[in-house]
Design a protein around this nucleic acid. Structure first.
Lengths: 165, 165
DNA sequence: CCTATGTAGTTCAACTTTCAAGAACGAGTC
DNA sequence: GACTCGTTCTTGAAAGTTGAACTACATAGG
């Protein structure tokens, strides 16, 4: 822990790549947020929740499952689902096997919103990303992102260890 | 406009890459946010503001400049600077040549916070990204991010053109 | 000078996210 | 059962964000 030696700063190239990364990822995030807010009336993350639900077995998932796969806290999900429920796109259902549990289920209206907006969203992603990258670059991006995720994946160790530093 | 033909969905590979992208970028963002919140008491974006200021000519920038280079709205910047000012890390100064203008200037305390946290932050970025990628992958990532940014860069055209779609 | 129009920055209201509790249930132990 | 501890999900308040309205100043044209 007490690594008080001179830190290894980023090389010039690394700095450039890092800035390009921050620049590009925030631009894309903003772009998709705006696109979906405008067309579907919700931010990107909310749209992602609907997508997850639409692909789940009976179009429903336990709250904790959904939170995990969307990588947000349960608290945040509670608020988000409350909002989506108000819109009529999601409905809560009790879990019979565990009375603490709740399912979030995608309603038909929610499915319809998804149907209407999926083409536009895919087009936005295409236009920003896949239509601009060469096939090689798409593969490279995939490999790089997988490496990144591996290093950051919240393992069980993280939960147990008292935080480092 | 009325492109009502069947949309071009993502191929399987593209879908995997897209998910990997979303997964990895949110994990990294969360990771850095937590690291900085814990060590420096501010989120990543606020830290970025201090960095920008630290590199500017007299450690100060006009609000609009800063907003642009941090890629956030002026509104958001106003709030952010208000918060950083409360912490004593930034000070507002009037612009003599334009009475509407404000400079945000990094204070000595702010500079000190930066000094104390830069090593830890760089280490976090290294550990999550550069230490895990091959030299080739670093180059590839840079190229890919530049292509992405090009396609999303808010050009003057965007301001003029009535929005597509 | 006067008016029109644009720009810099802030503020307001609505919304989202976070953080710290807290309520309700499950599971293991005695 | 009664106790403890962990899990599931919700809640409420504080903090942060957004987009539009607003203030103040700048700039250009008559």
């Amino acid at each position: 822990m007490g690594d008080m030696t001179e830190p290894r700063w980023l090389t010039d190239e690394e700095q450039h790549v890092w800035r390009a990364y921050l620049h590009a990822t925030t631009l894309l995030e903003d772009h998709l947020d705006r696109q979906l807010q405008r067309d579907a009336g919700m931010p990107h993350i909310y749209y992602g929740l609907l997508v997850q639900l639409s692909q789940a077995p009976r179009r429903r998932l336990r709250m904790t499952e959904l939170a995990k796969s969307a990588k947000i806290t349960r608290s945040r999900l509670s608020h988000a689902i409350a909002r989506l429920e108000k819109n009529g796109w999601v409905r809560r259902e009790n879990c019979p096997s565990d009375k603490r549990g709740q399912f979030a289920r995608l309603t038909d209206e929610g499915m319809e919103v998804l149907r209407q907006n999926a083409p536009g969203h895919v087009a936005a992603v295409r236009q920003a990303l896949f239509d601009r990258l060469s096939p090689d670059q798409v593969k490279q991006l995939g490999a790089i992102m997988r490496v990144m995720a591996e290093g950051l994946e919240p393992t069980d160790a993280d939960a147990d260890l008292p935080w480092l530093r």
